[in-house]
Simulated scan of single mutants.
Amino acid sequence: MNLYCIPYAGCSARVYDSWQRHLPDSVTVMPMELPGRGARCVAEPIDELAPLLADLYQQLDLTSPYVLFGHSYGAVIAFELAKLLRSKGDPEPAALMVSASRAPRLLGADADTHRLSDAELTKRLAELGGTPQELLENEELMEVYLPVIRADYRILGEYGTGSPGTVGCPVVAFYGDADDEADLASVEEWANFTDSAFGVEKIHGDHFFLHAAESELVAAVEAVCTKGELS
């Protein structure tokens, strides 16, 4: 089983580098690097959904069983990628795992973030957490980082709050029990965006439990990958 993982806004897919050591050999972690970060840092960030999905589509091996996982912003992108696969008649993922993300029709809170000034956006990132303080305080690095995070937030901002359709695969949603950004009620709404089974899993931590509760989260992801377990 290939486990394709999409990172949160502004983040490199290297955030998933440590996952493989927690997983059995039967599950292969496939981090999906977005342009402008990590190994693709010299590429121009993509700030429109359709070309970003086309880019990610090229990274998939559809000849092997697979699942999709996305955290926060990455969950929305994973959902849209699953929809694209369905529309093309391609093999759909065995499961779509959305982590720390409100359901699509509840995403309006970040609508104007990409329009903030550099100073305002930096302040917003500091308030959210998840961005290292040493990065926020380094002007040269922030000149490189801000266009990347702004591109991601533009996609979120222009995503809309209507009904964006459904996927045909099971969906399992992970939420942090101390996450003010995506609480249980907003995460449970994902049930309305699949025509298949739905499950929800509580993980201890705030919006960035991806880091603080890595072993707990990966164990839950492994159960979905190897046993198809949905709560």
Rank of each mutant, 00 (worst) to 15 (best):
C11K: 06
R14L: 03
D17Y: 09
D17K: 09
W19S: 02
L23M: 14
P24R: 01
D25T: 13
D25E: 15
V29E: 00
M30I: 14
M32S: 05
R40M: 08
A43C: 15
A43I: 09
D47V: 08
L49F: 06
Y57Q: 01
L60A: 10
L62I: 15
S64M: 12
P65Y: 03
F69C: 08
G74Q: 06
E80K: 04
D90E: 15
V98S: 04
A100M: 08
R105T: 13
G108F: 08
G108W: 07
A109N: 07
D112W: 06
A119D: 08
Q133D: 13
Q133E: 15
N138V: 00
N138L: 00
E140T: 01
L146E: 01
A151W: 01
Y153D: 03
Y153L: 11
R154K: 15
I155Y: 00
G160V: 14
G162K: 11
G168M: 05
V171E: 01
V172C: 04
V172I: 14
A173D: 04
Y175A: 02
A178H: 14
A182F: 07
A185I: 11
A185S: 14
V187G: 01
T194G: 02
T194D: 03
A197V: 10
F208S: 07
A212S: 15
E214K: 14
V224F: 04
T226L: 15
